[in-house]
Design a protein around this nucleic acid. Structure first.
Lengths: 176, 176
DNA sequence: GGCCTGATGTCAGTTACTGTCGTCAGGCTA
DNA sequence: TAGCCTGACGACAGTAACTGACATCAGGCC
């Protein structure tokens, strides 16, 4: 993972081959593919633990909480964890921004987070169109907040940005 | 395109090679890649015209319309156009559902629609966090509505489903 | 000391994609 | 009518991402 991120940063994602990554790590190409399903996945290895965090936070939201608040609690937990990662999440985001192929992968991962969130909401008794919609909304809020967090060097508090973005969403969707 | 969709439907996306598609169309592999950037893109060729439709609808929304209503007008226009496609959109959706690779591509295309929508909203004077959020919300609404449209054989009116999903979103995000 | 297991190397193969060059038909112009 | 130009296509060689099969080898366990 370290070798891959270094090389993606140095020469760019598309310009680095899997053989080069393996060589820098002191391994062979074949071994790389035993650890990562493909050349992209090496950047998304941490996603599963993030998903577990999110799901747990949704599940642990107070019983009385509105669905959207439970979902947002989930993405806030994920956001807090990301924030602990130091420079790495920002570096990762910058690399992803350079390649559509990587953006594709990021989008499916986020979509997976949305599915997990929706499933957890259903478990909490939220009926179906509402559960999906709430989950999608929460992930959209997360994405916008994360974008701002990555690009604003000043802004350090990702969970705070998430709450602010939720407020924006509420303002924006408020009926006439 | 016809050859590709047929083959993807018959043996599955991953099981069909570009050579086979080209052969069925009476062409060579090389010519396939002159028309489509890659094996996935053949399923998303109609996306650009859909995007133009959406952008135009957002631009033509009445001046007084709330941002969310302008954005929803855009996805409604797209939805109406999709509905005109007969069986093809549903077939396409069923094929995409069988392959993560294709879902990745679909997600970037939707993300592109969200970007275009946000850009158009900014042109209408909507400031920045609100514009992105509104666009993302509109696309989320579209996605949920489209999913229901694809899976409910009874449901024929996609724009109606979109409006219903927007109402759901409003209910779900309404503050306490 | 023998055996099993898990991680790795090696090698051959498939397929998506790209660059380059040659061909050829149709339309346009002198 | 002859020459020319252009755009679409075929042919061919090459790269790189993946995959399957088999061999090796170190460490732990009986």
């Amino acid at each position: 993972m370290k070798a891959a991120i270094e090389l993606y940063g140095e020469r760019g994602y598309e310009q680095t081959t899997v053989v080069e990554i393996a060589k820098r790590a002191g391994l062979t190409e074949r071994t790389f593919f035993r650890h990562f399903a493909d050349k992209r996945e090496v950047l998304f290895a941490g996603m599963t633990s993030l998903e577990e965090l999110l799901v747990a936070a949704v599940a642990n939201a107070p019983d009385g909480a509105a669905p959207i608040d439970a979902a947002i609690a989930g993405v806030e937990a994920a956001g807090a964890a990301i924030q602990e990662g130091g420079d790495l999440p920002r570096l990762r985001a910058r690399i992803i921004a350079t390649s559509v192929e990587l953006q594709e992968r990021e989008l499916v991962k986020l979509s997976l987070l949305a599915s997990s969130t929706a499933r957890e909401l259903r478990r909490r008794g939220v009926p179906d169109p509402a559960a999906s919609l709430t989950a999608e909304a929460a992930i959209a809020v997360f994405r916008v907040a994360f974008d701002r967090w990555v690009n604003d060097a000043d802004e350090h508090d990702l969970p705070h940005l998430i709450r602010a973005s939720l407020d924006e969403l509420r303002a924006v969707t408020a009926g006439h």
